[in-house]
Amino acid sequence: MIDREQVLHVARLARLELDDQEVARMVGELSDVLDHIERIGELDLEGVAPTSHVVEVANALRQDEPRASLPPEVALGAAPEVEAQGFSVPSPQA
């Protein structure tokens, strides 16, 4: 189960604007899915190690050797707004 307040809180964390309709739908749909998922709560998992990754690759490192960077016009090429060869954003203080 998840309620409207929780949905709004999670949406804020995820930086998602949801309109009223989306919020209402999300409450129902996420609750359904969470009810299904919560069945794993019944399993006895005492002492079981978590798996974050199935392959254990150790020390897959890179030598400290410079490689060519992108030309700035390519780096900035897909940016929605460019100013002074930088990616323009509204000021965090605005």
């Binding site: 949905v7 999670v10 949406a11 964390l13 998602l16 999300m26 996420l30």
Partner: peptide, 12 residues
């Protein structure tokens, strides 16, 4: 959006 919400919730 649904999955982002589900995932953010599960990690919150």
């Amino acid at each position: 959006k649904r999955r982002i919400m589900l995932g953010t919730f599960a990690l919150s």
